[in-house]
Write a protein that binds this DNA or RNA. Structure first.
Length: 473
RNA sequence: GGCCCCAUCGUCUAGAGGCCUAGGACACCACCCUCUCAAGGUGGAGGCACGGGUUCGAAUCCCGUUGGGGCUACCA
């Protein structure tokens, strides 16, 4: 085998919006194949449509791929910079008689198809021998008969009768090449061996094959069309109506490895019941031939579950590092100078067990850092105001805590005893203390939290709660 | 409308003619654990779209129907 037989795949997103999870899965499958077979992963930006493309979106795509760890070997190439290649291919196709110029307007075409009832372009300009030039689009002459077959690694043989394929435009009337042309020219030029992309491209594939063959290339690549990702209404994930941007998930506190794991299982599964796969396992076990053919719903709940598992699998140190952006940056619910890294580190293991996304962290520790300290009204009402034993308990705790060893076990024992004096289980006794000191009825373990808070602040909050009850009555 | 794709619990899936009384996971419910909430553990409910074939035997193969989706641009 020569080097030209090396596996070469490309991921070719168009920079017309946020990079979404469907694209991420396509990129992942491409990447997995390359990693196992030792091939080359090429990144190509499909920006032939100058109107809709934006460099900012390209940066977003690059950032997201990098964050996910899907590194590429060549590129990013921009189709907008490869115009000479497309022009040369068009010249070649003119010479071989595959093309003709067309000056039909959309309206004229629609008017004619309305009468004949056969949709698509009717070949009106085929024999008019118009000279190419501005104002005239260039069309590819599709054979009137015969069948074009797509050999698809995922779907098998898919046949298209040539008579159902219209003479499609490959160069706009303003001279710009169209995607269908650029993609084929680039794939030939880049010696792509596997075209792995979403199913929505399947209908245009016979056109690509026709073009490919017309350009005299005997090296047709292998195709694999992946099922689309859908929303709860079973429609293709859309940048407009669904939350699908990879960077949204990053900002919400999803881990890239969790997202990758989840995405990998959307349309493929290993040969046993495992669901947690390392990237290494994905690489060695993933097979294009095993990819499902039906659309998959992108389920955030399930993603969150995976993310929780990954978070719990982090070491203390890793967890703290990953959490940093969420407790110090824009996500924090407190000014930077109120944050105490050591206190956070002490609480980190307790937080890690309770969250599914890193974005949930601030809520758990705002009682430590937020200024001023705020108590949830409903919780205060229920656990303190409407509990006639709340004040005695708070008072007793305050007195005992002022002289106690300020350690979790001690604090717990004390509260347990106080509760027993009122014939109360610890579960109920701790409720009023929790609300008074942490501001909510649910959260991190109470006694560790009090220690983090410190004796002085704990006593102050207990006093404040007792006073607040007096003021309320 | 035309062309194409798809069809196992609500969701993601296992299932390559007998291993299926259809397995796992998320979500849901119950219980256990427990200072709250989680996490964890145990158990439960829940599915082969329908109709014809083929076969001794079909979730698995074939045909049809129905349903869903994609494409149908001088977008990608």
């Amino acid at each position: 085998m020569t080097t030209t037989n090396q596996v070469r795949v490309r991921f070719a997103p168009s920079p017309t919006g946020f990079f979404h999870v469907g694209g991420a899965r396509t990129a992942l499958y491409n990447w997995l194949l390359v990693k196992r077979l030792g091939g080359t992963f090429i990144l190509r930006i499909e920006d032939t449509d100058r109107e809709r493309s934006d460099e900012a979106w390209t940066r977003g795509i690059l950032n997201a791929l990098t964050w996910l760890g899907l590194d590429w070997d060549e590129g990013p190439f921009h189709q907008s910079e490869r115009r000479p290649l497309y022009d040369a291919a068009v010249a070649k196709l003119w010479e071989s008689g595959h093309l003709y110029a067309c000056d039909c307007t959309r309206e004229a075409i629609d008017a004619r198809t309305k009468e004949t009832k056969t949709p698509g372009y009717d070949g009106f300009c085929r024999e008019r021998k118009l000279t190419p030039g501005t104002g005239r689009a260039t069309r590819f002459r599709v054979p009137d008969s015969g069948i074009t077959t797509v050999h698809d690694l995922v779907r098998g043989e898919v046949e298209f009768a040539n008579e159902t394929i219209e003479d499609f435009v490959i160069v706009k009337s303003n001279g710009d090449p169209l995607y269908v042309l650029a993609v084929v020219v680039d794939d030939i030029d880049m010696r792509i061996t596997h075209i792995i992309r979403a199913e929505e491209h399947l209908p245009t594939t016979p056109k690509a094959i026709l073009l490919w063959n017309a350009l005299d290339e005997a090296t047709l690549p292998l195709f694999a069309h992946l099922p689309v990702l859908v929303n709860e209404k079973r429609q293709k994930l859309s940048k407009r109506r669904d939350r699908v941007a990879v960077e949204d998930y990053r900002d919400l506190g999803f881990l890239p490895e969790a997202l990758l794991n989840y995405l990998c299982l959307l349309g493929w599964s290993p040969n046993d019941d495992r669901e947690l796969l390392t990237v290494g396992e994905m690489i060695t076990e993933f097979r294009l031939e095993e990819v499902n053919r039906s659309p998959a719903f992108f389920d955030e709940k399930r993603l969150a579950h995976f993310n929780g598992l990954y978070i719990r699998g982090l070491s203390d140190q890793e967890f703290i590092e990953r959490a940093l952006p969420f407790v110090t940056g824009d996500h924090a619910l407190w000014p930077a100078n109120c944050f105490d890294a050591e206190l956070f580190a002490a609480m980190a293991p307790l937080i890690r067990e309770r969250i599914a996304t890193l974005g949930e962290i601030p809520d758990y520790i705002k009682f430590l850092f937020a200024d001023p300290f705020v108590i949830d009204e409903a919780a205060f009402e229920k656990a303190i105001l409407r509990d006639e034993l709340a004040v005695p308990i708070l008072q007793a705790a305050r007195d005992a805590y002022s002289i106690a060893n300020f350690e979790p076990e001690q604090l717990k024992e004390i509260l347990l005893l106080i509760g027993e004096q009122h014939s109360r289980k610890l579960a109920k006794t701790q409720a009023s203390v929790r609300v008074a000191t942490m501001g909510t009825s649910v959260g991190l373990p109470l006694f560790e939290s009090l220690v983090a808070l410190g004796r002085t602040e704990t006593l102050a909050r207990l006093d404040a709660a007792i006073t607040a009850v007096g003021n309320a009555s």
